[in-house]
Design a binder for these strands. Structure first.
Length: 827
RNA sequence: GCCCGGAUGGCGGAACUGGUAGACGCAAAGGACUUAAAAUCCUUCGACCCAACGGUCGUGCGGGUUCGAUUCCCGCUCCGGGCACCA
């Protein structure tokens, strides 16, 4: 018997598969298509065990589907723009392009050792001008459609990365930069944005998508839809002066005892009285400063300043003081609120602090008639359901949601308010003050203003001779060759935009890019150009199964849905959702159960493991660790189990056992039954990404085959081994291919064989273990033929020697029989 | 504070729609083979009591429903993730 030496067979088959083109996408109309997609890697220069954990199971699934008769497309590429390349440029004086392509070259090699069925011919590299010219083309189309715009507004800026960020890329209450985890600051800047908010309602609709509930919840949460009423309040003594507030609780409007404007609100200056002017000015300044610096230490203490002016409650004409306070955000709703302290905890705290009244206007329905005082924070009633309006002339006694409707309708009829839906999500800020990204294709002319670069001039290419400064500032700002251009409108001198696009732009359409390998270098674009062949897109799109990490739930996965909708509106796609099914794999942790990081020294290097155990073993072990979506800590000894298993399969596949064509009938029946049960189990598990239990089933079958091995005939033995190889092929593609070629050299690759089918009759057990319980406690086990009748089962159980002692001196009250399962005797 | 997950042996985990808790693997212990080691193979392996047969307890904690609960319901604890003066 030859020994199992993975290194000898793995590279051989990797080369063979790629050269034979057996995994290149081809349309066979008789086969159902399957677009399998795994999130593309950033070319950091080293393939991490996390990449293996994400991609190896994806590959197993793709291979499984191919054997199940699908035509499978499983592409790969590189998300090649981004900051690390610039940092390397500054540190090592190497152009980001050189650094990136060197890394890609290295990672291609590492990825190939995984043995995935990647369609390498369709690879995309997002920093290739032939790729990013289309990112620019989409941008120009969006500009024409009004989906892209430039705005001067406060934005989040990361000092460490020297760039602005999208709201999605600022994390948590600490407001950390998604890349470097340093706190961001606010800055007022002119920035390009994409109108993702145009699609909010559609983005909230997940119908037809098989996505994890968690991701749907996170996106829904992020979009933050809330239904309410927006209405106008006049300022007393200023006939021409009014402001609007948004509320989700119009039913509490009679309880308004003051209003609050955000310190930045445009009306503040105009309405502040002379007496209050100094206090208001000081508060606004302090608020502006607070926003810049002391964000972390910011307490939730509510304070504010009276403006001296009053607003008129349009419902009852009551005059209420107008305050400014920084607990009201300028960026949400109208930047102003009606304050109802009896029914809002924040308003209550504020009212308490400044001695403002807190009248009750809704009460629990059960308490109707008796209006409680509501003089503590705990007594603040915020419940909608079960509350009724009181002290609200004309509306008393109304319950939610009629109370909402009645007030809203009244406001609409009287013409001072209307129903309104507000969202938390903001438009996508895509400007980055970085060099290594897609240039935003616009120029600024002194005479004509901002002008888009004509389609025919795309791509606007990054210079190859950029000078990087240690300050981290984008070299584009100082690169005269890039900067100086002519205005497409008047032909005069103009300057290019030096901001580049967020790299999430590249990953917002790469899965369509994979299908457009015909981009031609030097091809002149026009508005009528097509980024892909429409027939090919119709045939393959959308993605059938997408896999990747959950960390992109409210970033990439939101942008990627938005892009698909925008591209569909450009007439380039005839579907509106990019991926029908989504699966989020978990994270592989270090041996110490902590997140892997260089500083912790718990990083596992896959290259070393491949060298020592082979790719198949690494794949198998990662899939065996536990459920794919759970992730797991790495156990350096555990991989031995996967290694042993594959070695024993190798032994089974190469050993000659001198037996006749048929063997012991009883042993054969057992093995045959196990075989069909294993086919069933593995098929079902792989369909549901349960790689760990599929592997456990294969191991069990291996155990049975080993123990009964000498007593079965060569015919069944060969069938069993062939089937084992087929079932194992998606998981351990190299070893199975090698053994398959040895046993069935004429049938072609193991990976194009039809998947085995199980026979229900052969899989059925002849005998079952019947559990006998007395009062729910296990007392005996009986081996009985499958399908035994209730009466007989009951009789057998009662007669059992082990049961008898438990029945003495007690009377049987009831006997529960679950056929083929158990008998429970209640005494 | 709100919204999602999760908690099972020494470890990773398994258990279909309530029906044998701990599959499969790792580690450990004992044994076989070997001059020896590695590899391989066999046996044991939740806790406690018992010489043994066997028994009692046991799926984060406390209750409940049920003949029967890791699974369903109620109330907690701890861990992880998301959101958060969002009006």
């Amino acid at each position: 018997m030859q020994e199992y030496v993975p290194s000898e067979i793995e590279s051989k088959w990797q080369r063979h598969w790629e050269e034979s083109g057996q995994f290149d996408p081809e349309m066979h109309p008789e086969r159902p298509k399957f677009y399998m997609l795994t999130m593309l890697p950033y070319p950091s220069g080293d393939l991490h065990i996390g990449h293996w954990y994400a991609m190896a199971p994806s590959d197993a699934y793709a291979r499984f589907l191919k054997m199940r008769g699908h035509e499978v497309f499983f592409p790969i590429g590189f998300d090649a723009f981004g900051l690390p390349a610039e940092n390397a440029a500054i540190k090592h004086n190497i152009h980001p392009k050189t650094w990136t392509y060197q890394n890609i070259e290295r990672m291609r090699g590492q990825l190939r050792t995984m043995g995935n069925m990647f369609a390498w011919k369709n690879e995309v590299v997002s920093c290739d001008p032939d790729y990013y010219k289309w990112s620019q083309w989409f941008f120009l189309r969006m500009l024409e459609m009004g989906l892209a715009y430039r705005e001067y507004a406060p934005v989040d800026f990361c000092n460490h990365c020297q760039t602005t960020l999208a709201r999605e890329q600022v994390w948590g209450e600490e407001r950390l930069c998604e890349r470097c985890e340093n706190p961001v600051v606010k800055k007022e800047l002119n920035q390009w944005k994409l109108r993702i908010t145009n699609y909010v309602e559609e983005l909230l609709d997940f119908s037809g998508l098989e996505w994890p509930e968690k991701v749907k919840a996170m996106q829904t949460n992020w979009i933050g839809r809330s239904e309410g009423v927006e209405f106008a309040l006049k300022v007393a003594g200023h006939e021409d002066c009014a402001f609007r507030v948004f509320t989700t609780r119009p039913d509490t409007v009679f309880g308004m005892t003051f209003c609050v404007l955000a310190p930045e609100h445009g009306l503040v200056e105009q309405i502040t009285t002379l007496k209050q002017r100094e206090a208001v000015r000081a508060y606004r300044e302090a608020a502006a400063r607070k926003d810049e610096i002391e964000r972390m230490a910011e307490s939730r203490e509510k304070d504010g300043v009276f403006t001296g002016a009053c607003a008129i409650n349009p419902m009852n004409g009551a005059e209420v003081p107008i305050w400014i306070a920084d607990y009201v955000m300028a960026s949400y709703g109208t930047g102003a609120i009606m304050a109802v302290p009896a029914h809002d905890e924040r308003d209550f705290i504020f009212a308490r602090k400044y001695g403002l009244p807190t009248p009750t206007v809704i009460v629990p329905e059960a308490l109707r008639g008796a209006v409680p005082d509501g003089d503590s924070l705990e007594a603040v009633l915020t419940d909608k359901v079960g509350s009724v309006m009181v002290n609200s002339p004309g509306f008393d006694g109304l319950r939610w949601p009629q109370s909402f409707d009645a007030v809203a309708t009244h406001m609409e009829r009287e013409g001072f308010g209307e129903r309104q839906v507000n969202y938390r999500i903001r438009d996508w800020l895509i400007s980055r003050q970085r060099m290594w990204g897609t240039p935003i294709p616009v120029v600024y002319c002194n005479d004509c203003g901002m002008q888009p670069v004509p389609y025919e001039q795309l791509p606007v290419e990054l210079p190859d001779d950029a000078q990087f400064k240690p300050t981290g500032e984008s070299p584009l700002k100082h690169h005269q060759g890039f900067l100086q251009t002519t205005c497409p409108q008047c032909g005069g001198a103009a300057e290019r935009e030096t901001d580049t696009m967020d790299t999430f732009i590249c990953s917002s359409w790469y899965y369509y890019g994979y299908l457009a390998p015909y981009w031609q270098h030097g091809e002149t674009l026009s508005k009528e150009s097509l980024p892909w062949d429409m027939e090919t897109m119709r045939a393959w799109g959308p993605v059938d199964q997408y896999t990747g990490g959950i960390e992109h739930a409210t970033m990439h996965l939101l942008y990627f849905r938005f892009y698909t909708k925008a591209l569909a509106d450009m007439g380039l796609l005839d579907f509106r959702e990019p991926a029908t099914r989504l699966f989020n794999q978990g994270t592989i942790l270090g041996e110490d159960h902590e997140k892997m990081s260089k500083s912790r020294g718990n990083v596992v290097n896959p290259d070393d493991l491949v060298q020592r155990y082979g790719s198949d073993t690494v794949r198998m072990y990662l899939m065996f660790l536990g459920p794919w979506d759970a992730g797991a800590p790495w156990n350096p000894h555990g991989i031995e189990g996967a290694s042993r298993f594959l070695r024993s399969v190798w032994a089974l596949g190469t050993q000659e056992i001198p037996v006749g064509p048929s063997g012991d009938a009883d042993a054969e029946q057992k093995v045959r039954r196990a075989l069909h049960q294993t086919i069933k189990k593995v098929t079902d598990d792989l369909q549901h990404f349960r790689f760990n239990t599929a592997i456990a089933a294969l191991m069990s079958f291996r155990n049975q085959l080993r123990s009964g091995g000498e007593r079965i005939g060569s015919e069944l033995r060969e069938e069993a081994i062939r089937t084992l190889l087929l079932l194992l092929a998606p998981l351990a593609p190299h070893l199975t291919e090698e053994l398959w070629q040895r046993c069935c050299p004429d049938s072609g690759s193991v990976h194009i064989q039809p998947w085995p089918e199980h026979d229900e009759a052969l899989a059925a057990d002849a005998l079952v273990t019947l559990v006998v319980q007395v009062n729910g406690k296990l007392r005996d086990r009986l081996e009985v033929p499958t399908g035994m009748g209730r009466e007989e089962v009951e009789r057998l159980a009662l007669e059992s020697e082990k049961i008898q002692p438990h029945l003495s001196e007690r009377s049987v009250r009831k006997v529960i029989v679950v056929p083929d399962r158990l008998v429970n005797i209640v005494v």
